[in-house]
Design a binder for these strands. Structure first.
Lengths: 375, 375
DNA sequence: TCGGTTGCTGCAAAGGTTTGCAGCGAAATA
DNA sequence: TATTTCGCTGCAAACCTTTGCAGCAACCGA
């Protein structure tokens, strides 16, 4: 029922190859002819069949974006940025959700492999070796994780965690707990490492609680453990957990920030809405989405997988892989305050609650130009 | 580089058609042969090329899901439900975001048309006639809107708005404002209609503020207008706007619920986290996602667009289109309270703040079986 | 022994597009 | 005028798979 290239050719009295060129190489066809073809195409409602085109060119003009959990407000800004960046280059983004499941991740890459030109793998939970194996099947760019030999874009959560810990140390905290993230998360390992180093360097006790589901309920479930740990400050793997923890602490009668200070990571929109407003480490996730698309499309343009037209690109020439790391920034709000004097719940603790202010810079981080480590 | 069906055929010493059948109709091939073929396929890492398959079968096993704004927490549960429902039937869902832009909607449908078997159009902002036109290009199921002649799944926001208004009337409110949604939203019109009728029936003044961006900032921007309107209760198009409004009112010194009661719609997860917790109308969006996928796949199975193998299905046989409406439920939390006695800001208003409780039923609505209006 | 099943496999067309190559007329050059 | 160049168009192969049909061997029942 839908019009094909052949219908248009017949209607305009030319060969199908001329119709094809009218769309994919307009400069090769006589303006007059072109006009006629375009008119007929419009008339018939013809649109090139992308599947057929993909079959021969080897390029679908689609990008796959695999996300751990679309309901986590951390991801939508990244997704939107990736989509708009892709659209500008006439690509479409297909988003898929894995529910934080490594198996689903693998299956999705397989399923997408033949219908996209490349895949953005966001916060993968699977093993490095599996990622490498999959990268032989379809061009991959990894987000929020470093994998040797593959293009990656990460955010400097190590630096972020360090800033957060130093902020807490500065407020006098000496017993600090970390709520770690899900098993398999590179980000979580990175945070743990950096926070541990910084805490011990500042002479603080440092305990790790986890791994955990990186959700609000995951955070709330830890309230009792946090209370028992006698920590006076907590750094959470992400804002969702931090917010859940604050809720949970509230339920067991522990006040934030008077009794316990809480810091999140991500700076999701929600962090400005809860009470108290959350102190957190802002991550440039829109920039990450844009950058990842650029990296994929860049070396995807160089080495088309196409059957014909491959300009003698041998398959084993190492394409240049870059690893980009974007900067993060601590945003101080109301969920952190000076440590209680010694025994807990010092009554006048409220007096030292700081007003909301920022540590550095006036606006949101525009960290599109983070440090670049090429290889 | 990737192995094709021909490579496998060569390796296992059979014709390509046998390889094809090994995957798409295993019962037609000798178990012994099948074993050999599977072994070779595994060995070579062969996976059927979905684009080529789609070209001849006319079915891609993909579904498009077009969403107004992926960052609106209303949608993720719907998306996830649709994805898992589709996955069960061996389909994949491609999500795309339109930024609430009718033009982007249209372009996306066109772009997706040839690479999916059908499109779920969620909360479309474009005109009815445009939707009908697009539905001739690709099978469509519309979510959150009724379009004559097309399969639709909607939520009974009319009933929800009525319950909300009656709840407010019961608390003594007689000046009620409605924060309407974006231009072109069927849901917004429906809410406005039902709320207007219910308010006037209860003898209340009813004013409409809008249209607005259905976001937190959209709601916050209306705080001043709401204050000036002297309304004592507000129903917002969605939770995001309600939450934004509460923030905004707070900033201009109006307290919720003591001075003004606020009701949202959607019951997003966030509504339980803000202070005060939001009274809202719960909508069954996961059920909506599942239902929409079912409806699409059902009549998509009946009438394959395929070139060959079309079992004499004439193209103009009206496929049966169903319109499903899912039920909603009012959830009463802390953002609504008795109207101030008359002048505003009655000091003892706090005394009547109700504790959190629900109006009906113990759990979330399991409204998969809403009223069904077949046509 | 023969006609008819049954179970499996091969053949070849078809699906819609792109693209290297060749052809052709006209214009430019020698 | 002969020859080359140029601009445009047609030809046909190729991409990878599915599937109706036909062929073939073995087996069954009569």
């Amino acid at each position: 029922m839908p019009a094909t290239i052949r219908d248009v050719a017949r209607a305009s009295g030319v060969h199908i190859s001329t119709v094809s060129r009218t769309f994919s190489a307009p400069h090769l066809v006589n303006p007059e002819t072109r006009g006629r073809v375009l008119a007929c195409a419009e008339e018939l409602g013809y649109r090139p069949n992308r599947a057929a085109r993909a079959l021969i060119t080897g390029r679908t003009h689609n990008i796959g974006l695999i996300i751990a959990d679309i309901a986590n407000p951390f991801f939508p800004p990244l997704i939107k940025a990736a989509e708009s960046q892709a659209r500008q280059r006439d690509y479409h983004v297909f988003v898929a959700d894995t529910n934080e499941d490594p198996i689903a991740e693998e299956e999705l890459v397989h399923a997408l492999a033949k219908q996209v030109d490349g895949v953005l793998l966001c916060s993968p939970r699977m093993s490095n070796s599996m990622i490498e194996q999959l990268s032989r099947e379809v061009p991959l760019v990894v987000i929020n994780r470093q994998v040797a030999g593959l293009p990656c874009v990460t955010m400097d959560v190590g630096q972020g965690a360090r800033s957060a810990i130093e902020h807490l140390l500065g407020l006098g905290h000496r017993r600090i707990a970390l709520l770690s993230g899900p098993r398999g998360s590179w980000t979580s390992r990175e945070i743990r490492r950096a926070a541990g180093v910084a805490a011990r360097a500042g002479g603080a006790e440092f305990t790790v609680l986890g791994p955990n589901q990186p959700t609000e309920t995951g955070g709330a479930a830890l309230a009792e453990q946090v209370r028992r740990s006698e920590a006076t400050a907590v750094l959470a793997y992400n804002d969702l957990m931090a917010i859940g923890l604050i809720e949970g602490l509230d339920a067991v009668g522990v006040r934030v920030p008077q009794d316990v200070s809480v810091v999140g990571i991500d700076d999701i929109a929600l962090s400005r809405l809860t009470r108290p407003k959350l102190t957190t480490v802002a991550t440039p996730n829109a920039a990450a989405g844009r950058t990842a698309v650029d990296m994929l499309l860049q070396h995807d343009t160089v080495a088309a997988r196409g059957s014909r037209g491959g300009r003698g690109v041998t398959s084993d020439d190492r394409r240049t892989t870059a690893q980009v790391m974007l900067q993060t920034e601590l945003v101080i709000r109301d969920s952190t305050a000076a440590a209680p004097a010694d025994g807990r719940n010092r009554p006048d603790a409220e007096l030292v609650t700081p007003g909301p202010h920022r540590l550095a810079g006036p606006g949101r981080p525009t960290a599109a130009t983070g440090g670049v480590v090429a290889s």
